[in-house]
Design a protein around this nucleic acid. Structure first.
Length: 644
RNA sequence: GCCAGAGUAGCUCAGCUGGUAGAGCAGCUGAUUUGUAAUCAGCUGGUCGGGGGUUCGAGUCCCUUCUCUGGCUCCA
């Protein structure tokens, strides 16, 4: 007998070797039908795994995250079965579950999968699923496994096997398909009721661009059609808030073939947002003791030799222009320029911390395939600043920067993000990372403490730091689910020395400052791209390109409309009159679609009484009020940067 | 940069097997003077991304190039 403990704490005895599926059946047939896998003492396993000792058991269904990933991983096997039937001789690499679905990487031996074949594969998978084929696990010796794939001529699986330990190797078979796999898998293919193959892509083997490119097929599956329909609907909804679509509709930015890829043109509406963000940054930074600087967009090659960006970063920079035998580069970062401002004068410890801020324009020659709307561009405006400080000041300065992030994020209501603390790898000191083992540990600990004290959830990622120090990145996701770093906060104990930066300390000795690179608002490009999706185009008043639209009921009230408009403009409100001879319904519709936060409807009654009828975007009629009342509402909401 | 798709009016799209381009919206003009998400009518607008080729004839077939999209690699 074995004693099995359930998640609610209850313990029941079963005969030795009972499977989770049998346990489920003992509870109810309905439950058994839903069981996908089981967690046995915390290890996710097949529902058919015999339990041979006392254990804690959790039955896993579709509702569990582990259930979904098991389900999707099994669907990946189903895909492989369908592909093998369609493309004999195909070789497979790996087919994991991902956040939303699964993929399988394969070598089709030069063949390609067309869109049509993709939907055929989808149908084929549906047929195979209906066969209710059981996923059969088989423990196999390493030699036998190698022999099997050598026979098959599959160098990818042989490569995988090299990294595996004999005794821990298993095969899974469903229907006509057998794969090297650790598992677990769902009981049988019949559970997979709805399948969608979403896209075909190229993916480098082992993620290395020097390797051969395999064909990757992405897909997603569900235990019923309804959930698939909902999933597709959700994707369509997400597309509606895609910043590329909204940016066009709202007249925020545009691209032009003759300007160049990745070089956004900011239209008047977008420029309003840029200027409001800069105003916020300037107010905040001035209050925090920053000093503003302005630097040129280009610099001589020698600057980037000093900084070490050449030749390592060269391929990400626009090629140089040569004048009188000297090469000039468009700047890809502002740091070296700021360092030169630091070193322009003799610095005393009394001047520190010195905080130099600039919305710096940078140019990066990103690979063409990486460009993505506003999120990844070649001309970017960075909310940059460099803080030069002594080691003693460091923790305070870093904390202050962190507080600034939090302050900003509160203003924008940004809560779906992950703070990522990127650390060094001691093995790579002197190669990927500057060889200062103690400074690394010391600054990493300081940064960690700041994060813990400020109560911000964060994840630590080894071997992701910058060359010159640890960093914190704020990770966000675009509407279609792509991940980006929105903002960054980096420690730098290398560039100071490279640039020969120093200040005279209290002991009248020269000392190299520590440098903090920080960009809490990231770049205008990515930040506004993010905000467009974050707000779904419905910016709060202070960021709205047009804050108020005045809508006269008919031409007769245009004069009064313009007189109200004049008062608003004089109070600093971005207001416009819609004086077209359209019906009020049409004017409202157009203004709603442009996401203008306030509409003032004006007709006979309002003109006579000298008031306005207020309509809030998305909320409808909000009643009448006097011009001075609406003016003070707008002014205070605007000034306080109120969110909606 | 690589793999796979796409590019027709400002926008969203139609155009069967090759026979010298269409709709809705937007824009303009006029009529209408309107009370909380689309008033009506007329008009303008495209060398079908660019270049080359096949053909009597190319939006449609082929090559090439540019741009975009989905991924990979890479990053704010």
């Amino acid at each position: 007998m074995v004693n099995i403990q359930f998640p609610d704490g209850a313990v029941r005895s079963y005969e030795l070797g009972i499977t989770p599926m049998a346990v489920a059946k003992g509870i109810s047939e309905g439950l058994a039908k839903k069981v996908i896998a089981a967690s046995i003492d915390g290890v996710v396993s097949d529902a058919s795994t015999p339990i041979n000792k006392d254990a804690a058991l959790k039955l896993i269904t579709w509702d569990d995250a582990d259930g979904k990933s098991t389900f999707w991983h099994s669907t990946a096997h189903l895909l492989a079965e369908a592909v093998e039937a369609t493309f004999p001789g195909v070789k497979f690499w790996v087919g994991p579950a991902i956040d939303r679905g699964f993929y399988y990487d394969m070598d089709l031996g030069g063949k390609t999968i067309s869109e049509e074949e993709l939907s055929n594969l989808e149908k084929k998978m549906g047929e195979l699923a209906k066969q209710n084929n059981i996923f059969i696990r088989k423990q196999i010796s390493k030699d036998d496994a190698i022999a099997y794939f050598a026979e098959k001529g599959d160098e990818y699986k042989l490569d995988l096997l090299q990294g595996l330990t004999d005794g821990e190797i298993s095969f899974y078979t469903q229907g006509a398909f057998t794969d090297l796999c650790r598992g677990p898998h769902i009981p049988h293919t019949g559970l997979i009721k709805a399948i969608k193959l979403t896209s075909i892509a190229g993916a480098y083997w082992k993620g290395d661009e020097k390797n051969k490119q395999l064909t990757r097929v992405y897909g997603v599956s569900f235990p019923n059609q309804k959930e698939l329909d909902e999933h597709i609907l959700m994707l369509e909804e997400a597309k509606k808030r895609d910043h590329r679509k909204l940016g066009k509709e709202l007249g925020i930015f545009t691209f032009d073939d003759n300007i160049g890829p990745g070089l956004p043109l900011w239209m008047p509406n977008g420029t309003v947002i840029i200027e409001e963000l800069e105003r916020l940054a300037k107010e905040t930074e001035t209050a925090a003791g920053y000093k503003r600087v302005v630097t040129p967009h280009i610099a001589k090659e020698s600057l980037y030799i000093t900084s070490g960006h050449l030749p390592y970063y060269q391929e990400s920079m626009y090629p140089p222009m040569e004048l009188e035998g000297v090469k000039y580069y468009l700047k890809a970062m502002n740091c070296p320029h700021h360092h030169k401002i630091f070193s322009a004068e003799n610095r005393s410890y009394r001047e520190l911390p010195l905080r130099l801020a600039e919305y710096g324009t940078c140019y990066r020659y990103e690979q063409s395939g990486e460009l993505f709307g506003l999120m990844r561009v070649r001309c970017l405006h960075m909310n940059d600043a460099h803080i030069y400080c002594s080691k003693e000041d460091f923790a305070n300065e870093f904390r202050a920067v962190n507080d600034m992030y939090i302050k900003y994020f509160n203003i924008f209501g940004i809560d779906k993000y992950v703070m990522r603390l990127s650390l060094h790898d001691p093995v790579k000191l002197g190669q990927k990372y500057i060889n200062e083992p103690e400074l690394w540990l010391e600054t990493e600990e300081m940064v960690r403490q700041v994060l813990i004290e400020s109560n911000i959830p964060f994840v630590e990622v080894p071997d992701e730091g910058a060359f010159y120090g640890p960093k914190i990145d704020v990770q966000i996701w675009s509407a279609i689910g792509r991940e980006f770093t929105l903002a960054t906060n980096q420690v730098d104990f290398a560039q100071g020395r490279r640039f020969g930066l120093q200040f005279t300390n209290r002991d009248n000795q020269p000392e190299v400052p520590l440098i903090i690179h920080r960009a809490p608002l990231g770049t205008h490009e990515r930040f506004i791209g993010f905000l467009l999706e974050h707000y779904a185009g419905k910016f709060p008043l202070w960021l709205s390109p047009v804050q108020v639209k005045i809508l006269p009921i008919s031409d007769k009230f245009n004069d009064y409309a313009f007189s109200v408009n004049k008062q608003l403009l004089e109070a600093g409100i971005r207001s416009e009159v819609d004086d077209r001879s359209e019906k009020i319904g049409k004017k409202i519709r157009d203004t709603e679609l442009m996401r203008v936060p306030y509409m003032l409807v004006i007709g006979e009654k309002e003109q006579t009484e000298g008031c306005v009828s207020v309509r809030r975007q998305g909320k409808g009629d909000a009643g009448q009020c006097s011009v001075s009342e609406i003016l003070s509402t707008l002014t205070s909401e605007n000034k306080n940067r109120q969110s909606i």
